[in-house]
Design a protein around this nucleic acid. Sequence first.
DNA 1: ATATAATAAGAACATGAGTTCGGTAATATA
DNA 2: TATATTACCGAACTCATGTTCTTATTATAT
Lengths: 208, 208
Amino acid sequence: MTNLRQRQQDILEFIAGFIDGHGYPPSVRDIQEGCSISSTSVVDYNLEALSKMGYLKRSKEISRGIELVGHRSNKTRIPLLGSVSAGQPLPVFPEDHRFLEDNSIEVDPSFVEQQSPVFALHVKGNSMIDALIKDGDYVVIRSQEHAETGDMVAAWLIQEEETTLKRFFPEGERVRLQPENSSMSPIFVDAHNVQIKGRVVGVLRKYK
Amino acid sequence: MTNLRQRQQDILEFIAGFIDGHGYPPSVRDIQEGCSISSTSVVDYNLEALSKMGYLKRSKEISRGIELVGHRSNKTRIPLLGSVSAGQPLPVFPEDHRFLEDNSIEVDPSFVEQQSPVFALHVKGNSMIDALIKDGDYVVIRSQEHAETGDMVAAWLIQEEETTLKRFFPEGERVRLQPENSSMSPIFVDAHNVQIKGRVVGVLRKYK
DNA sequence: ATATAATAAGAACATGAGTTCGGTAATATA
DNA sequence: TATATTACCGAACTCATGTTCTTATTATAT
């Protein structure tokens, strides 16, 4: 039985690898060859078993009709729209959410499972250091134009033409943009000069 | 010609939707039906055009041999192997990297572009708070058994049967596992009682 | 041991599905 | 207007590919 699970293990891994490599699932014969199995019927047999165990779904009579469960092909690739200054407001924020192929990062699908679009920004500066977000991190933003008091948001300063990452506090005619860095002071701007671009829903950091 | 691009646009969108919905690409006839096209040859014609324009790749003589470019099917899905205590060493770390379908998260492909396998751990506790890693974060780990002095690692304490997230400092016969939390003390363990499971290469956080 | 079920093999079958080809319509070019 | 180019049709062709059937090998249990 140890050898039993082995074969199905092999098959699963082969399928996953094949899909990653080709972009489409393997045929029964691809699997047969890839796993050194003598007969297509054996593949069929094990695929059926794996299917019943819930590891994959099969579409009858459909070529390559295999879908690995939990292997959701939902790319969850989100566009990387630019950078935000977390210190002094600095860089630009292009309005065009156009397909910036290659300028994108992949994130956990749960980020995107909502309605509004999601994108990422590269953080410059350490104004949100106390929120454990530092220079070089990526923040995942969900597009929305309104924010609750205290939300961490990407705000577009119209006049300055800059995007900044701060906590949002409306105060009558003006807005307080509060950094999370005890050594930095809040920024006060006219409410008409601020446009909320979205709320921070995630952080992503890469170590070298 | 406006109507021209329209058809190819339709086809592209149909393919993307089909893949997301089924987990495998559509056949020529699927596209024909889905886009209300009169003949399979028309589909073939336009697929060839799209292929030449670089929108997709086709595998000759292969059923459903369509791969959308930029739609990189490289899942970059990495297994979520469990949790690490970042405070006191606490939970378990199953040795079997077996297929824990559903227990996985997706990350930026650049995390995985290396050689050794990569997996994720759910962080429990705040021992790495000064490294801006907090309770609830996910750390992305690259499997490796050796670590450089000062590396942030997931270490398996053999005797305690626990995984812990600390910085690694070998000190002769023993090893100092240093938390990044000014209010916590390092742990000293016998060198033979420590097994490096991997090095932290990324952090992922989700906000509610 | 012997029965029974679980796996594996091999081959043949049926059809899903990519491709080809002759021909037409629409558009562009001369 | 003539002619080339591009886009579309239909149908047939051929092979890729899922499925099934029969017969060997194992396992597992009684």
